[in-house]
Amino acid sequence: MDCNRESIELMHKYLDGDLTKPEECGLRTHLETCADCQHHFHELKRTITLIKSAEHFSAPEDFTQKVMKNLPTEKKRVTYKRWFKVHPILTAAALFFILMMGGIFSSWSQDTQLVVSKQDELIIEGDTVIVPEGVTVPGDVLVKNGNLIINGTIDGNVTLVNGELIEENPLEGENLMASAGGVNGEFESVDRVFEWMWYKVKDIFKSVFSF
């Protein structure tokens, strides 16, 4: 065996876990008889142990805060979601109260016709718009007064007005907030009743608790 090339090559292959059984036998036999190679092999293994013990460094204390401060601003709908999570009872009570007041849906229900942007790839079933699997819809998609199922891909922005994004496997019943995985652009869900209620909730509580 050529010590300067072949056997050193085998040592590196060994260190990368790439040796075949016969190669390993060959290397072992050679190491037993060649002191130079044995020394070289020992040095290589020791080098790895030494590398692993190199000094460690940790990030400055305020690192995470700094990153968070410099991120682009968060989308509004998530702030709502967090508020609801923190104040579930308050939310339920407020919604109940508002619904009791009635009249909310009267002006609301006038404009209920399904409106969809014109793309041949979109399938419409009742009030649900479907992006079929394996299909890429070019351009921005608008769905008004209807639900949307995205099985394929939308190569543009999605605007969903007064409707829900339906996932085939709903997670924790969070349909409204579900992620639009197959959307290459921005996803925006505008629910006017929702926004209006939110406004009303804040208004009522402001006047009750004056905060």
Binding site: F57, S58, F63, V67, M68, L71, M177, A178, S179
Partner: peptide, 21 residues
């Protein structure tokens, strides 16, 4: 991915020293 920025804070805390180092 759903838009929850606070969750990213946990990701940063977890990897900050590895990436900084």
């Amino acid at each position: 991915k759903k838009g929850d920025q606070a969750a990213f804070g946990d990701v940063v805390s977890f990897y900050q020293s590895k990436i900084y180092q």
